[in-house]
């Protein structure tokens, strides 16, 4: 499960498709205005209902909403990891990385690497 952003990382993920760069079809994306708007509640909902992992494709320093976006998104990951620990979910099941609007290959690489990490987890 991937959370992307309307203006920056989702266009990057679209680019991967446009350039026919393959990644796993088990990747599903929800695009939001800003990566700092992901609620830990949603992350838990995804993990508790069947997703193996959640990836936040963050705006990082390119965010047009806040210069502190990376810090805020990071905080969301930290809070989610606390909630995950309480429910015996491996904190490695959440991951974030900044993704730009033309980051097609980096996105596919992130999906491949994250997929490998998730496959080897035994919570």
């Amino acid at each position: 499960m991937v959370f992307s952003t309307d203006k920056i990382s989702d266009p990057g993920i679209d680019q991967a498709g446009l350039r026919k760069i393959h990644y796993s079809p088990s990747v599903y994306v929800i695009s939001l205005p800003c990566s700092s708007g992901v609620k830990p509640k949603w992350i838990m909902h995804a993990l508790e209902n069947g997703f193996d992992g959640v990836f936040i494709a963050a705006d990082g320093h390119e965010c047009s909403f806040s210069s502190r976006c990376a810090e805020y998104t990071n905080k969301i990951v930290e809070v989610s990891q606390q909630l995950m620990k309480a429910k015996n979910i491996n904190p490695k099941r959440i991951r974030m990385a900044a993704l730009c609007s033309v980051c097609a290959e980096p996105f596919a690489n992130h999906m491949e690497n994250f997929g490998k990490i998730l496959a080897n987890l035994e919570d």
Partner: peptide, 16 residues
Amino acid sequence: GCGICAPVCPENAIEI
């Protein structure tokens, strides 16, 4: 409409 305020609310009182 960025939604940055929503995850920080301890009461989950904000939605976009």
